[in-house]
Amino acid sequence: CHSECLGNCSQPDDPTKCVACRNFYLDGRCVETCPPPYYHFQDWRCVNFSFCQDLHHKCKNSRRQGCHQYVIHNNKCIPECPSGYTMNSSNLLCTPCLGPCPKVCHLLEGEKTIDSVTSAQELRGCTVINGSLIINIRGGNNLAAELEANLGLIEEISGYLKIRRSYALVSLSFFRKLRLIRGETLEIGNYSFYALDNQNLRQLWDWSKHNLTITQGKLFFHYNPKLCLSEIHKMEEVSGTKGRQERNDIALKTNGDQASCENELLKFSYIRTSFDKILLRWEPYWPPDFRDLLGFMLFYKEAPYQNVTEFDGQDACGSNSWTVVDIDPPLRSNDPKSQNHPGWLMRGLKPWTQYAIFVKTLVTFSDERRTYGAKSDIIYVQTDATNPSVPLDPISVSNSSSQIILKWKPPSDPNGNITHYLVFWERQAEDSELFELDYCLKGLKLPSRTWSPPFESEDSQKHNQSEYEDSAGECCSCPKTDSQILKELEESSFRKTFEDYLHNVVFVPRKT
């Protein structure tokens, strides 16, 4: 048989008469490798580009789960590009990614509803959504962080984005990388972005840091009482949809009607710091009717980097990364020049730590249904340095008659930039024990000054392991946590139920 035959053949030295091919099969003959313009397919066939392209389009058009959109890589027609490569849609070739590779997620039936953290986790790592997304989240724990972890990498949506009755959302900033909504599939009414009845939605994105392009379709905003109209108009300008909307697409009466839409800028007039305090004062603000001013709200939190936005980490279910302080308005003076500047002394802060701070007014709604208010920009203030805590785990070892090696770990709280350490030492008198000992005694162990690591005695271990207080009263049991108490109650309830079950099964009433 021919060298490319495997198993047997019907005619000697003829690659077209093989029972099976050793390498690849091409047009009725066995070959060692697939010549151009053919590609290896499933490690035994040679196919042309049209064959591989037909497989790709067949799966793409069917949208069946589990099928493969075949691509070409290293002269092979394979189910998908290997790690580190992405497909070129024009020629199906796998090309190296520039940075992290995109991950295209194809949605069944063309859309997916995100109504819980669990459903959001199914899209973790996706960068391109081939379909439409509907966000409908009523509640949950730590929602802002969970949504950002699972949806934060999405850069492109081919269909539309719909935010509907998501009472738990305060902001859409968890879509931190969303840059493009194509609108290839539109919501009824030709809408590519749809926001309806979101009672706590206050911000779409921080438009000073976020760009969003909507290729096709219109915007729809109705019944978002805490979303200011200025935020919607800003989205029109940034996304390129200005002029597409009709009169009733953006409701003037049901958007922002319960919001404090600040239209003035508060400026800080005085800032002073110490290692654990920050004193702030800002310019006074009074609405047209000074009785509408209820006070100020001061927001602050630790910020290692200057990239904080107002609604980071917030949701309507209680999660809030900001510390909020309510401040009463100052006494009002008739003389504008003698107006008191409101302020606040922030206490209990960490030394040498940068804080993000902003302040906003708290006002009631005027009778004319106009909203007044003022808010400052987010500023960054760093507390002063102070003395560091003591170095940890000092170790001293003498390696000769004239040297001592000293080692330690950095302090747990540096409280500033540590530039150097101060080492103090003092000579001590020799131990009298060394002169009084009889060095001729056998088995004498000389006193040693070398360091030995501390260890816990058996008594201390027994005390720590004991669940009861000892007789001397030195140790006591740790208080039980809520989960331990709940577990004990469940076990007790189970024992009672099981005992009742045994009584009912074992003891049967005697027939009379």
Rank of each mutant, 00 (worst) to 15 (best):
E246R: 15
A168V: 05
P284T: 03
V128T: 07
L293S: 02
I357P: 00
G131Q: 04
E231G: 14
G125H: 05
Q245C: 08
G295K: 15
E302L: 10
K337F: 11
G183T: 02
P411L: 04
C126M: 02
K301R: 13
S171W: 09
M235W: 06
I129C: 12
S396K: 12
I271A: 15
L227V: 06
I129W: 06
G159P: 01
Y300Q: 15
K337D: 15
D393M: 15
N399W: 12
F221C: 13
R281P: 01
Y305Q: 01
C228T: 03
S269T: 07
N340P: 11
I154M: 14
S398T: 15
S274W: 08
A120L: 05
A374W: 03
G243R: 12
C317E: 15
N136K: 05
L294I: 12
L279I: 10
I157T: 01
F299L: 12
W282M: 03
T371G: 01
E146Y: 15
N255E: 04
N248K: 12
Q199R: 06
L107S: 11
A251K: 07
I327F: 03
R179G: 11
D377L: 03
W207P: 09
I250P: 12
Y160F: 12
P351R: 11
S166R: 01
Y223G: 10
L151T: 02
R165F: 08
L252N: 08
F296S: 00
L298V: 08
K242R: 15
R332V: 11
N190A: 14
K267L: 12
G217N: 10
L219I: 09
W207Y: 10
M346T: 08
R281A: 14
Q382I: 13
R176C: 14
S192L: 04
I114P: 01
Q382L: 07
N150C: 03
I134T: 15
R370Q: 04
I278Q: 00
K407T: 03
N307F: 13
D328P: 12
G131L: 01
A144G: 12
F193I: 08
N334L: 11
S230H: 04
S116C: 15
F299W: 10
R138E: 02
G110F: 05
C228H: 02
S274N: 06
F268Q: 01
L349K: 04
D393G: 11
S239F: 07
L331N: 13
Y270S: 14
N198V: 05
V381P: 11
Q203G: 00
N334H: 11
R272L: 13
P336L: 08
E184S: 15
Y194S: 13
E155K: 06
F174S: 05
N200S: 13
L293K: 01
Q382W: 10
I129K: 00
Y380Q: 07
N340W: 12
D289W: 00
H233D: 13
Q121P: 02
N399D: 15
I154N: 00
Q199A: 08
L280G: 01
K277L: 12
R124V: 10
A259Y: 03
A168S: 04
F358V: 03
D289S: 02
H233A: 05
K375T: 04
L147D: 04
S389A: 09
F358Y: 15
L151Q: 01
D289T: 03
S230L: 06
I378C: 05
E283R: 13
D335C: 14
V359S: 04
K218R: 09
R244L: 13
K162T: 04
G189P: 15
N141Q: 12
G343F: 03
W408V: 00
H341N: 12
L219H: 12
F220S: 11
L169M: 13
S338D: 15
N190C: 15
N263E: 14
N200G: 06
R369V: 08
K234N: 14
H106P: 08
K350S: 11
K267V: 12
D206G: 08
S338P: 14
S401R: 15
L219P: 11
V238T: 06
E109P: 06
A385S: 06
V381I: 11
I250A: 10
G295A: 08
T353P: 01
T323W: 12
L180P: 02
G217V: 02
C317N: 06
D312F: 15
E237F: 06
T213G: 07
S173H: 09
S333A: 09
Y167N: 09
L265V: 12
T254K: 04
L201K: 01
D249H: 14
A374Y: 06
N136L: 05
Y194A: 14
T127Y: 08
G240E: 06
H210W: 05
D377H: 05
D384G: 00
G243S: 03
N211S: 09
L147K: 00
T213C: 13
D292W: 03
A251T: 14
K337P: 13
L178V: 05
A144N: 05
G189W: 09
E302P: 10
K301V: 04
Q339P: 11
D289K: 01
W344A: 15
G313T: 08
L147M: 11
E237A: 09
K350A: 11
L143V: 08
F174C: 08
D326K: 12
S260M: 06
N211M: 09
E237N: 10
E302I: 14
A316V: 11
S400R: 14
I188H: 09
F296N: 00
A120D: 01
Q354C: 15
T353V: 07
I157D: 01
Q245W: 04
Y300G: 03
K209C: 08
V397I: 15
G256D: 01
L279F: 13
C228Q: 02
L227I: 06
Y300T: 06
I157H: 03
Q121S: 03
S274D: 14
N200M: 13
C228M: 00
S333Q: 13
S401M: 02
V325W: 15
I327H: 07
S192M: 04
F311S: 10
S192V: 13
G217M: 03
G295Y: 02
G140S: 15
Q203H: 05
F311H: 06
I327P: 03
E262W: 00
L219Q: 04
E122F: 10
E302C: 15
I404Y: 01
L180Y: 11
A356I: 12
S158L: 15
I395H: 13
T273H: 14
R244C: 09
S173E: 10
Q199C: 00
G189T: 01
A195H: 07
D249W: 11
R202F: 03
I181T: 01
G131E: 03
F290R: 01
L133Y: 03
E148Q: 15
S400M: 10
N200T: 12
Q382A: 09
S274V: 06
K277N: 14
P304T: 09
A316S: 13
G125L: 10
F220Q: 10
V308G: 03
R347F: 05
A303S: 07
L133E: 02
P351K: 06
G189F: 14
G139W: 03
D289M: 03
N150L: 05
L229Q: 08
R179F: 10
F193T: 05
F299H: 12
S171V: 02
L345Y: 12
L227D: 01
H222T: 15
K301D: 06
T364L: 03
L212S: 02
G243Q: 12
L362T: 06
R138C: 00
E302Q: 11
N263A: 05
C126R: 00
K162Q: 15
R332W: 11
S260Q: 05
A149S: 07
T361R: 01
G125M: 06
I278S: 02
K103M: 02
C228E: 04
V390I: 15
F220G: 15
R369N: 10
T215E: 10
W205K: 10
Q258R: 07
G313S: 11
G343Q: 11
S173L: 08
W344F: 11
L151V: 11
L331K: 14
A144E: 08
I278A: 13
A385M: 08
